[in-house]
Structures are given as C-alpha cells and as structure tokens.
Amino acid sequence: MASTACFVIVSKNDIPIYEAEVGSAPKKEDLSYHHQFILHAALDVVQDLAWTTNAMFLKSVDRFNDLVVFMLLHDSRSEDGIKSFFQEVHELYIKIFLNPLYLPGSRITSSHFDTKVRALARKYL
C-alpha cells in the first residue's frame, strides 16, 4: 500500500533542519509544498501542546483531511510504529547533536543520518 509520510525536524524559530519524504507513495512534485504547508500549520498546535504535556510523544497533533500530523506527516494508521520510529530518530538526532562540528539549529546535511532515517521509515511505517 502506498503511504504518504513526510518527516521534518524543526528547530526553534520554525526553521526546518531536516526534511525527508519517507513515504512509499510515488513522489509528486506539487505535493511537496502541500506537505510543508500542513506541517508548518501544525506547528501552531504543537506550540500549544508542548506547554500542556510532559510527554515527548504528542500523539496525533493535527489532521488535514486524511493526513495526520505527528510532525511526521503521514497517512498510515499504526501509532506504535510511529512511536518507535520517533524514538529511534530521536536517538539519531541526539547523536548528530553531540557532534561537536554540528552547529545546533543548522540544517542536518549528514548523508548517514538521511540513510538511517529512511531505513527506519521503511522498518516502522
């Protein structure tokens, strides 16, 4: 089944530091901005939620038509998979963050990170 999933890591001031289309659906050019719009709009909700809960996993944050935003924009149903995906990616992100050459808040360009995230996406989503 083709699924849509667009994964973005956003640092403060709404700056996206990592973007990846990890879904198995064929990539459509005109949809990429669509996804960005949805994710960007969902940040409003995240901003609210972040103050109300301690949990790192915010569950389903927002929805647009049939697309659900976890800050990962996707259309599949399995929340467990998504949760573990987030955990693993978070670990990866921390590794990147610990890199002394990485300037926090700058774009993640590591190809290793990219391949890892895509592998995780295939595994869990």
Binding site: D14, I15, P16, S32, Y33, H35, Q36, F37, H40
Partner: peptide
C-alpha cells in the same frame, strides 16, 4: 506568516 522562513517549498509556492 511565511516571511523570512526557510520552508523552501512554501516560500516558492
């Protein structure tokens, strides 16, 4: 809203 923001596709669109 989208001024000065690095969401490239949004800006372009």
């Amino acid at each position: 809203v989208y001024k000065q923001n690095p969401w490239s596709y949004i800006n372009n669109h």
